[in-house]
Amino acid sequence: MIDKRVNTTAEAVAGVRDGSTVLVAGFGAVGVADHLLDALHEQGARELTIVANNSGNGDYGLARLINAGRVRKVICSYPRSGDYSAFLNAYRAKSLELELVPQGTISERMRCHAAGLGGFFSPVSAGTKLAEGKETREIDGRLHVFEKPLKGDVALIKANKADRWGNLTYIKSARNFNPVMAMAADLTVVEVDAMVELGELDPEAVVTPSIFVDRVVVVGADA
């Protein structure tokens, strides 16, 4: 019987190695797998490359990992969001590297890896500082920039409901980066509010199909 459920967040993030690229879904504080980030803090992996839209807030989740000196590089579109003092201090101390990528380019680079493609040409950032050093091509008279696929070793996903196969549904705008990141990593780990019986999720409403999911853990009130 397939059962991707694990009992603890520690089991969920077991085996993450030093130097891993970790896809951290969410937009601001919404749709972020904070329990898994805390478990990753406990787990101890170092020299992490984080792919996220923002750079963490306060001293929890991603910010806590940064404050603990565990992050070597952040690939994101907008680090300046909310109380991002953890990132700012590390950035000013030059203890981590920032790769700034337009928001739609980050998500498409991950989708591209998930789709088994070798990259894509995009008009976004053409002729700007963010395109410096990148291959360009004029396509139908318009300048495009070559963008490489982006792959995670691990993805930390926040979903609403899962079944034991790992089919996932989301809530409202907490969906954001979760479905695309869930597709783009070797190991996809999910925290959910609730598990339901196989067959209970409306097949028309499943957003992330089980093929992309490796481990599921229930967090919060129903854990």
Partner: peptide, 27 residues
Amino acid sequence: PNMVDAGKNKTTLVPGGCFVHHADAFL
């Protein structure tokens, strides 16, 4: 708490509104 806009301010959905993931939002 699960409804925010691009500026991370709380927002709402109108009747007929729907959700997509990030790659489709930017598509």
